[in-house]
Design a protein around this nucleic acid. Structure first.
Lengths: 214, 214, 214, 214
DNA sequence: TATGAATGAGTATTCATTCAT
DNA sequence: CATGAATGAATACTCATTCAT
């Protein structure tokens, strides 16, 4: 799936990047506060530091802003995640690290994650498909760590189980944000991480290993 | 938290109930198709089978419709869930049944669940709080089943772990709907249910019990 | 060609007729002053005596107003023309009467005729086709009078010549309006009518008749 | 009436001429396609082969472009007409030639003639007056031919009739363009020219000449 | 109680024009 | 001289809400 092409009247590619970055920054702030539909294009322009006319020099429609925002959030999540994963661990150690890192990123970007969950549906079909692909790509990072843990012989999972587990981890990350009204009242991030990690790993640990340990 | 009072010009309480039921039915259909913001009050009135004037005899604002819709979805989820749980099981058996029932209800009401996840944020603060309470009450049903499983001595969990597990179960139900673009391509509902149930229970099963079984 | 259907949100057909009449009246005034493109929908609403919202209860787009205006102008031209032609004359007498009547109607409706000439091109294709048909129907009235004059044996014309003559008469009527900056400085309507009538008839009069008269 | 002064930031008169020629060429193409109001200045600049900034180095406003276009169309009509009239005929022969030439020019420049008829009204007052003078000057060419025919003694016309006839000829030329939706379906240019010429001349031919011929 | 016509604030988008580079 | 990014007033159209019947 190709990156959706957002039309611009401006030729200087560098300038486009800069302006769109401003735009996304302003828009995210507003979308977090009032959501996509309740935010006007004028507000986006103003918050971004330029006029409404200029805004439309860099996009074709309001929906393009949403697309740029979603795209950018995914890129940032991925970037932060990869940054936290730079060390070269493997096996279950790796998996623990992925979980902790994911949760930490979600914690840092709670509002952005919420925007994604709630506004994504307003994207035009094509853009939506593209964004969902990014989500799957992200899930794949987790899947690789799970697989690595399998290969290390520490856990045994079918391919199906691997996939499902990855989804579970991803969603447990997200729910730290979208159920924060309940979860964050009861847990700190580190308790949450610890409890979830233990549960996730206990469930998959090889039986004989466990018993051996015992 | 009190049920939010939705104003009506009409006295006959029965009529109010009937009209609002029509209204919610029409609105849900539309919200599923186009979302709350893209649906007009005129459309809601038409889909409900009465005029725009009449619509406003039974609500005070468009947001009231959203509130009624969310409220009604929760009531239906709860009703269906309780229906499926009428038999008097206990212990781990009970827990399995709760999980399976929840997943089945979510499967039946996927679109409604999605509407909730995506439009809830558009509710006015007070209404939002009320609806979130309903969500917590729902989670409590699960929590009770988990606790019942503990009491049966089949699993051992701290109170914290109990709460978290309940959230996890709830969210794993919901994700069947909101990640369907990926999950429902890979799993049938019964596979999904089976895999998730196994994982959830394996993780919590008492060690000695497991070994004993061994 | 069917009359184009202009959409309306209002059900009462009578009301639609009344409101659209107001609308056309207001719009014509404005189009005469500033042309279609320089007139805003708000101005049309205001001049028509209702709000912009109400305007859009009776039309689907600004172009619909132009269509209604053109349609209405043609209807009025035709109505006035037919009124002036109610007496039952025939032959050349009839033709003279048609010419005089046409010129008189154009004189009365100069501004409207100009609007037609200048804004018709802004109509959507379908509407344009419909309006041009009305123009042809009007030309047919003239053609019938010319034919009547032929049948009376006073003039002899091929079918082609009949058609062309009718166009000429029509356009000579219109030019009284669209060349008024020059023609109306030099002629009064009655002089113009007399001169044009003489020329039109002299050119077609049967040769032997003329000579017989001589 | 002075030629309207179109302001330019550029000194080099030659360059001004060249750029404006490009501009008019581009603009005519666009005005024919979409009319003056639906054409943007950006489009004009692009079609002309330079940037929007450059466009405004050679004009003061969008209306100036329309003025230049109208001015240029008149000049070309005149030029072409004069070219076709270079041979030194006189009398009725001359008149026939003028008619045929005019019709031929209009046929060649149909779109341009239409633009004139439909957009002229958007000119600012002063520019409009200037352009109408050009139209009158053009009519004068015809008038001279008619007069020449009179002087040759072949037709007899009062001064009033001469003027009116010239207008008629002019308009019969134009109508070949602006009623083409009907006329060009029924006639070829040469039939149209022949029929109209015959009618125009028959109507004015001296009575005794005609009879003599007879 | 039911209706639907009326309202006008609000919104996305366009485009002529300017001006710093 | 040429460029094209920036501007913001202007504009068509929408839609939640009201209220007279």
């Amino acid at each position: 799936m190709q990156k959706k092409n957002v039309p611009s009247m401006v030729k200087d590619e560098q300038l486009i990047q800069r302006r769109r970055a401003q735009m996304v920054k302003g828009a995210v702030t507003l979308f977090i506060q009032k959501g996509f539909h309740r935010t006007t294009t004028r507000e986006i322009a103003q918050e971004s530091g330029f006029s409404i006319g200029t805004l439309y020099e860099y996009i074709g429609s309001k929906e393009d802003v949403l697309y740029l925002v979603c795209d950018s959030i995914y890129d940032e999540v991925r970037m932060r995640l990869e940054k936290l994963l730079e060390t070269n661990t493997t096996g279950t150690e790796r998996l623990k690290q992925v979980i902790e890192s994911l949760f930490r990123v979600v914690d840092d970007m709670q509002d952005e994650v919420l925007v994604m969950y709630q506004e994504i549906k307003s994207l035009p079909k094509e853009a939506l498909a593209y964004v969902l692909e990014k989500e799957e790509a992200l899930t794949l990072i987790i899947e690789k760590a799970v697989a690595s843990s399998c290969q290390a012989g520490e856990v045994e999972l079918t391919e199906e189980e691997t996939k499902l587990l990855s989804h579970n981890i991803m969603v447990q990350g997200h729910m730290w944000a979208f159920r924060r009204w309940s979860i964050q009242k009861q847990f700190t991030l580190s308790t949450y991480t610890e409890l979830q990690t233990r549960r996730l790993l206990d469930g998959v640990r090889k039986r004989h290993v466990m018993m051996g340990k015992k």
